[in-house]
Amino acid sequence: MAHAGIKMKKTFGDSLFDIVNTIFWVIVLFIIIYPLWFIIIASVSDPDAVIAGKVFLWPKDFSLIGYEAVFGHKELLRSYLNSVYYTLTGTALSVVVTMMAAYALSRNFSGKKFINFIFVFTMFFSGGLIPQFLMNQKLGLHDTVLLMIIINCVSVWNLMVARTYISMNIPNELYEAAIMDGANHFTYFIHAVLPLSGTIIAVLCVYYGVARWNDYFTALVYIRDRSKLPLQTILREAIAMLTTSTSTDAFFSAYEGDTKGMTEAIRKALVAKYCSIVISTVPAVILYILMQNYFVKGVMLGSLKG
């Protein structure tokens, strides 16, 4: 609270302002929460009620058949596991590589400005989609799991954030003391810098993890083998494409040839879409909620010193 220092009787204008402000925020919160709430209640309602538009504020005719359809969908499940794998390995690699480079860039050494430039330049100028596509083809990275893990491994923006954090929050005296005691850069990095960088590591985990979990475009461009596709690319086919005929709908195609299963699937499909939104979004939101305290702290620390 910025102005809790002095208590004074509120004027009429200020009270009015507070009321208007509260109403504003209630409306904003409603606009943000309602769509999310609707997805959750639609996912646990009966398909017929959702199609008829009877679901508004509370689940109608509670049922879990949407989730059954999602968990019965082989491709969706496999892509879910793929995404978990890509996200965990990719994020771990990214955080380690970024922290190493960020520490090095926070110290003084010859050639630092030049190396800095090598990184920063890529933020402003890139080869573009097509040359990158062709070069990755030449390197034999197309359609490989390796590509899904190492592409976009280092985000220069995150690297700069981490570097600024380290150089502002870890005193140079610590380094001098460690050197006196016989440490080198490696031991100092592992035993002093990493334990003191909890906040920034948490922030990096969220940035990298969420970016990887939510990325569909990389796989769309590079992956042809359907068994390697991540969740978001499969989701795109299931929910984010205009479906003109049922055969293009991922939730139906799994049942092709099975007439009875097909009619049932059409009924379920709508609710299943809501369910797949829930199960794909929950991990990212949970990660955010878990790391949220670090997050706010990190931002505040940076702002105070900056």
Binding site: M100, A104, R107, F109, I115, T122, G127, M135, N152, V154
Partner: peptide, 24 residues
């Protein structure tokens, strides 16, 4: 030692940002 710490990041940047520049 600092160069060694920088090497992986530089490697990834080289492969995914500077090689495509050659492909331009």
């Amino acid at each position: 030692q600092l160069y060694v710490l920088l090497l992986p990041a530089l490697g990834f940047i080289f492969v995914f940002c500077y090689l495509p520049l050659y492909g331009i």
